[in-house]
Design a protein around this nucleic acid. Structure first.
Length: 572
RNA sequence: UCCGGCAUAGCUCAGCGGUAGAGCGGGUGGCUGUUAACCACUAGGUCGUAGGUUCGAAUCCUACUGCCGGAGCCA
């Protein structure tokens, strides 16, 4: 089709972004383009001239501020129009002209938009060739042959990339090639054909390719293995790697599966507050929330003049609020961020993390343990079913025993041992521990590891802990020494769930609060639950990141949170 | 916060008292339906910061900063 009409109306606004410099005239020569439509734009991108030209090399002075659209390319498949943009200022020597930009003309945008994008995951899974398609994504790697290039394009829909065959005869090849580094974003249209090479069923034969954004050689991600430590320093780019792609797709799926588990069982999702005045006793140091500054902050009675009129913090748990809703809806769950201001420097702790906290009325500790165990098994099975490719990758590159372990956990009942029996087992183990095993003391990490990794060789729930080492709200057992608490321990991770039956008897609760030095009036609304229609109830907290660690095998919590917050680290 | 380790090219590391090195990545050229492609050439570094010891320090000592591993706190 020959264009007799101006390409673009005078006065139209064209978005022009010159980011990458290439000689415009060289592209024209290499492409054999000697005739085209030239539009001239001013600095605001408004079209001031629009004309059909027989020889663009004659445009001379005008080229420095023009967009040149080759006629051939407009004819080519309708979708392959190339756009060249000259710099908007500077000298006009054709050989020094900079800026062949990958920006799209309105016409080209329109033409490309007409073809619907296909996600690479669907494309690769196709039974029969989908014909002509359009994909958009980022170049993972490029391999050049004499007459064509292989591009691996990934759009995040799956671990696998699409192999794209870019033939040198395609318009724009020579100009685009220097921009097609690892990390560049591309918009590709072409035909899906059966691959001649090994490693993939389908590949894409390019008919038209546009570089949306080039990634110059300073792009930090190379097509090789990087350490997790380095990738943490470029947390904004690491989701583009295989491992973090897999981890965050699994994380997303697990998040969905958690809602599925509870929603299918009639639990009501509750958004508990993030700013709170109450300390869920025993949950650690809290971040203070305040609008006070300078001297006002340290002044006596400062909190009465603060935003909320009292001292407030970022929540460490939604449990207390969750209990109030459980005492209305029977079964509820929360799923949200929680915060701990502990100076923890370990692979398992973060200052900001996500927690799932179900709370069930008319439920005792046994029921609590049953829900906790079936939740873990449900989540593992869901991930095995829906994240097969990503977990296979983790199994190969993170932890070679991962899949075997996950199947084991999902497939058989968990062990259950009372705290008192656990102490006996540890004492009779014949092991020498760094910390002595004493009834009434916390189980140390080394003790928990022995129980789950050696004694049970799988997940184990420890229950009925000494009252002296647990918070006030846990239900006192009849032995007068223990409370109805439980911890679910997983090999390699440690405690993944901590929960309890709550003390529903007002007198016992008051007594526990006094003996732990708490002012009952600060918790008046919490104790009200025991005053008005109290019921036995129980719940637990599941650390979401620890779950993701368990399912992916990734051993550091900083690598399963998109932008981890740990002491001295909140860059992104 | 405590204990231990580490800090050298864009990345991963070697060098451990005497002129700063390799592989990968980048650039250039070649070759090939390749798939962490391959071959050749090439560019690239105040050896974390500040002191000290020494004729001489990347190397030995001290402090600081950051990171990593373990512990505690917990999820």
């Amino acid at each position: 089709m020959l264009l007799d009409q101006p390409v673009v109306d005078i006065g139209a606004v064209v978005r022009v972004e010159i980011e990458d410099a290439v000689a415009a005239s060289m592209l024209a020569q290499q492409s054999g383009v000697m005739a085209g439509n030239v539009i001239v734009v001013d600095d605001d991108g408004i079209v001031t001239q629009s004309a059909d030209a027989d020889d663009i090399s004659l445009q001379g002075e005008a080229l420095h501020s023009s967009i040149v659209i080759a006629k051939d390319q407009l004819r080519h498949k309708g979708a392959g129009a190339g756009v060249m943009v000259g710099p908007r200022e500077g000298a006009c020597n054709p050989l020094s002209i900079l800026g062949v930009s990958a920006c799209l003309s309105p016409r080209r945008s329109m033409l490309l938009a007409a073809m619907q994008r296909m996600r690479i995951k669907e494309l690769l899974a196709a039974e029969t060739p989908p014909g002509e398609v359009r994909v958009q994504g980022w170049v993972r790697t490029r391999r050049d042959s004499k007459t064509f290039s292989f591009l691996e394009v990934n759009d995040g829909s799956s671990l696998a990339s699409l192999q794209v065959i870019y033939d040198a005869s395609i318009e724009g090849y020579a100009a685009n090639l220097p921009h097609l580094h690892t990390g560049s974003s591309v918009d590709v249209s072409g035909v899906v054909v059966r691959s001649q090479g090994k490693g993939q069923n389908w590949e894409l034969q390019v008919r038209s390719l546009a570089v949306l954004g080039a990634a110059p050689e300073t792009y930090p991600l190379q097509k090789k293995r990087h350490t997790r430590e380095f990738l943490r320093e470029i947390a904004h780019l690491r989701p583009r790697t295989n491992l973090f792609g897999a981890v965050f797709r699994v994380r997303s799926r697990l998040s969905f599966a958690i809602h599925r588990f509870f929603q299918e069982r009639g639990f009501v999702h509750v958004h508990t507050p993030i700013i709170t005045a109450s300390d869920c006793e025993g949950a650690g140091e809290m971040f203070r929330v305040t609008t006070l500054e300078g001297q006002a902050f340290t002044a006596p009675e400062a909190e009465t003049r603060d935003f909320f009129g009292k001292r407030t913090f970022l929540t460490v748990s939604g449990q207390l609020e969750g209990e109030t809703f459980a005492c209305a809806f029977s079964n509820i769950y929360t799923f949200g961020p929680t915060f701990r201001a502990e100076n923890s420097n370990t692979a398992r702790h973060a200052a900001e993390f996500w927690m799932i906290e179900p709370e069930m009325a008319f439920c005792d500790l046994t029921g609590d343990m049953e829900v906790a165990e079936s939740l873990i098994q449900f989540l593992i099975r869901d991930a095995l079913d829906h994240c097969t490719e990503d977990l296979a990758f983790c199994n190969e590159f993170v932890d070679q025993g991962l899949l075997e372990r996950l199947r084991l956990i999902a497939g058989r009942p968990f062990s259950r041992i009372s705290y008192t029996d656990a102490v006996e087992i540890l004492l009779r183990s014949g092991k020498t521990f760094e910390y002595p095993v004493v009834w009434g003391q916390h189980l140390q990490t080394e003790h928990e590891r022995y129980l789950s990794e050696e004694h049970c060789r799988g997940p184990v729930t420890i229950y009925d802990y000494p009252a002296s080492i647990k918070p006030f709200y846990m239900r006192q057992n009849e032995d007068g020494k223990t409370v109805a608490a439980m911890d679910l321990l997983v090999p390699g991770i440690g405690e993944i769930i901590g929960g309890s039956q709550r003390e529903e008897r007002l007198d016992r609760l008051s007594q526990a609060m006094h003996s732990q030095g708490l002012r009952e009036e600060d918790y008046w609304w919490y104790t009200d639950l025991r005053r008005y229609g109290t019921v036995p109830h129980a719940g637990f907290g599941l650390g979401f990141e620890r779950l993701v660690m368990m399912v992916t095998g990734v051993e550091n919590i900083r690598d399963v949170i998109p932008f981890p917050r740990t002491p001295r680290n909140a860059e992104f």
